[in-house]
Write a protein that binds this DNA or RNA. Structure first.
Length: 475
RNA sequence: GGUGGCGUAGCCAAGUGGUAAGGCCAGGGCCUGCAAAGCUCUUAUUCGUCGGUUCGAUUCCGACCGCCACCUCCA
């Protein structure tokens, strides 16, 4: 299994530090607003990495933080006339709601910055003691020159950082590149007590402190959006590694940006889209399919056309799985068959694994899945009773892999069926009446029943084996 | 100025030193009372341009053109 490590800009073999448990830290959202599709992309990539590692048999501990105190939260709260605490709380709840609607499983721990103030203070104190930090008017700055390897992640030389910088330099700092780990409280701002007076933590220190608290001094995988590579992740490394003397994260993964209608998505451009709004228009599986239709390190453009394409692809997948579902109970793994489809099933599994093993290439993995879908449909169209056990195997293989990607949820499918079980006899009755009409060649009545049922989200299909029907997926 | 990335069919998107997965759309055919679904055929002699290395490059190297990201809070 290989992972592209931003640290070396190379594909590297993945070997967890502790074979018993893979540790992952994912930089979560700053909860000053609902999360947008870009946040969702990063969260989804993390979710799928975890699902795949579990599929491979690893134990995984995933930690994803929520930044619940920062400048943006304070500013937004002031605008809305609420408290920073209340705003952060509401948006945290909204985050869990939205991400679960996207089928993202909860992390094992979701630490919040405001609940780890003491851990951060302890870490800052260590850095002060080691001479890597200094105090100015109650604020603590990290002395970048104290860490010889500063710049190793972003591949930047100290001189380069100064060149095109358009940032206002705080003249009080020893070096313009030094960053704050603790900000002295300004009047009216939320603050916490510290050995240096009232204040609040800087952004970078929270991830260092919370990652190490919940996962140890060295973690396997650290993930986040590509924009976090510098300075956020660079600073996390500087803080953590200088404090402990150990490697902070062994594999750094960065998810590329999502664009909207070809343009950079950003709050300032006013062209961002909230995940919850997207979920109001498209089913979970469609959005997930869209988000993984390109490799995670490549830019992806959110637009209606792309989502429509994913809708089509998911429809094709669901049609196939629906048709296959009735063979599921016929599974018989004891007797290996020599059907051509059997080979296709094995081939798909191996292609899927190979794709995911190569830096989680979900686009390629989807290719493998849809190749089997094609083979299954072919097999179904020339229906042969003897292939039934193989169809069951195909169903198993497809649902298993689709669940790693989260583009097919059997539980949701089942619960939907339970809910609607009551009206099944009614639909069957209507189909009986329709069949009578068809026998009389009363196409008007027959088509009316079909059309009216379609309006009620019941789709019927006349096949050589008789008429079948199903509920259409609701978004 | 520095760092990194991208340019593959109508669209989206994988991929490989030996001749291009998959999806969407479109057109023809089969099936059907008509649909739907499915099947089937057609759709890049070619992978931004120009050079180089090689028996052979879309894949490696160089130059150029175009696009983008980061260097500032941002997933």
């Amino acid at each position: 299994m290989k992972i592209y490590n931003s640290l070396n800009r190379r594909l590297e073999d993945f070997e967890p530090l502790n074979p018993e448990q893979v540790t992952i830290y994912s930089c979560g959202p700053t909860v000053y607003d609902y999360i947008h599709m870009g946040n969702a992309r990063t969260a989804l990539v993390t979710d799928i990495i975890r699902r795949y590692l579990l599929y491979k048999g690893y134990n995984v501990k995933l930690v994803q933080n929520l930044t619940d105190i920062d400048d943006k939260i304070i500013r937004r709260a002031a605008e809305l006339g609420t408290s920073a605490k209340q705003l952060a709380h509401e948006n945290s709840e909204a985050y869990f709601e939205d991400s679960q609607r996207l089928g993202i499983h909860l992390a094992d721990v979701h630490p919040k910055a405001t609940e780890h103030i003491q851990d951060m203070i302890n870490l800052i104190q260590i850095l002060i003691d080691k001479g890597a930090a200094y105090v100015i008017d109650g604020s603590i700055y990290y002395r970048v020159n104290a860490f010889a390897e500063y710049g190793k992640l972003s591949n930047r030389k100290p001189e380069d950082l100064l060149a095109g910088a358009r940032v206002e330099v705080d003249e009080r700092k020893e070096n313009p590149r030094d960053f704050d780990m603790w900000k002295a409280a300004k009047p009216g701002e939320p603050s916490w007590d510290s050995p240096w007076g009232k204040g609040r933590p800087g952004w970078h220190i929270e991830c260092s402190a919370m990652a190490m608290k919940h996962l140890g001094e060295t973690i396997d995988i650290h993930a986040g959006g590509e924009d976090l590579l510098f300075p956020h992740h660079e600073n996390e490394i500087a803080q953590s590694e200088l404090a402990t003397g150990n490697t902070f994260a062994r594999y750094w993964m960065h998810v590329a940006f999502l664009k909207i209608d070809g343009k950079r998505m950003g709050k300032s451009e006013k062209n961002f889209i909230f995940l919850r709004d997207a979920l109001d228009h498209y089913p979970t599986e469609v959005i997930r399919h869209f988000l993984i239709s390109a490799h995670y390190r490549h830019p992806l453009d959110y637009n209606q056309e792309s989502l429509t394409k994913s809708e089509g692809a998911i429809r094709r997948l669901n049609n196939c799985l629906d048709a296959l579902k009735k063979y599921d109970r016929d599974i018989d793994l004891s007797e290996p068959m020599d059907a051509p489809l059997q080979h296709a099933v094995q081939e798909m599994k191996s292609q899927f694994t190979q794709a995911m093993d190569t830096d989680f290439n979900t686009a390629q993995a989807l290719g493998a899945i849809f190749t089997l879908v094609s083979e299954v449909n072919k097999s179904l169209s020339t229906f042969d009773e003897s292939e039934t056990p193989v169809l069951a195997q195909a169903y198993q293989a497809l649902t298993e892999t689709c669940q790693v990607l989260g583009i097919y949820d059997t539980e949701i499918q089942d619960s939907a069926t339970d809910n609607e079980a009551k009206i099944e006899p009614l639909v069957d009755l209507l189909l009986e009446v329709r069949q009578d009409a068809r026998n009389r060649k009363d196409w008007e009545t027959s088509d009316k029943i079909r059309d009216r049922l379609k309006e009620l989200n019941v789709e019927i299909q006349d096949t050589p084996q008789g008429t079948t029907w199903k509920f259409l997926a609701r978004s």
